[in-house]
Nucleic acid binder design. Structure first.
Lengths: 123, 123
DNA sequence: TATTTATCTTGACACTTGTAGAGATAGCGA
DNA sequence: TCGCTATCTCTACAAGTGTCAAGATAAATA
């Protein structure tokens, strides 16, 4: 199931708010980006058609949607694809970027250390 | 400069082989994917038009291209965009996936540990 | 030199994506 | 009950994307 940039962004909102309606997602999206309700609704429709969202409830005229798969299970192949596409399939290269950028706080690094060591212990 | 999926893939090849020609890139790409020379050349043309590639040499009729920017400098914003789009801007979430998947070897983990610690020391 | 061949250029096309307006209509409040 | 309003549905369109064939032509080779 191939999703476009914007479709991914919208699905993202649903990962954060499972069971959301088009109007509410529109409100959230508009925090970052100026788009009309129609646009967001179209994207939701496409996500539904692609099988990434499903209707799970209805209140009045308002339809509520939810992701059909967990964020984790969708992120996995996306990450893989990204690593292949941008980092020549080399996760270590990605890590390096993560570490070089200031994107990780000291806290993150500590956390990283802990997990990396834990993995080591259990192998 | 926004690049499409396939454009990114092709640019990737140039990061690995700076100064490459359309025919040679075509050969490389066809290892993974069945596409004609024309298709690859079109993508290269578009990358040139977008300013990601430039002509740097010519031998006979064969034109050689090279990336206009370093892999690193292009990867940075791409990674950022990806983290925002798929991981809600949370790099830690990304790391978790990296660690959970078997995408990292023990060797990678050791390496990770070393770097994370080094960063710690210098902060 | 004449011919073959490799490479480039151009044009094309269907599909996807981002974007949104117009119109229908169900439900809520007066 | 009746009109207003929020929400949905439908339709549309320009630009971007993946894909390639046909034709031109320069260079290599016979």
């Amino acid at each position: 199931m191939k999703l476009s940039e914007f479709e991914t962004e919208v699905l993202q909102v649903f990962w954060q708010h499972p069971k959301a309606s088009a109007p509410s997602v529109h409100k959230i999206i508009t925090n970052n980006k100026a788009v009309t309700y129609s646009t967001v609704k179209t994207i939701i429709d496409r996500l539904e058609k692609k099988g990434a969202l499903q209707r799970v409830d209805q209140q009045g005229r308002t339809i509520f949607y939810a992701p059909t798969a967990s964020a984790d299970s969708m992120r996995k192949p996306m990450l893989n694809n990204f690593i292949n596409k941008v980092f020549a399939g080399d996760s270590r290269l990605l890590m390096n970027h993560l570490l070089e950028n200031d994107s990780l706080s000291q806290d993150d690094l500590d956390y990283l250390n802990k997990v990396a060591n834990k993995n080591k212990a259990t192998e």
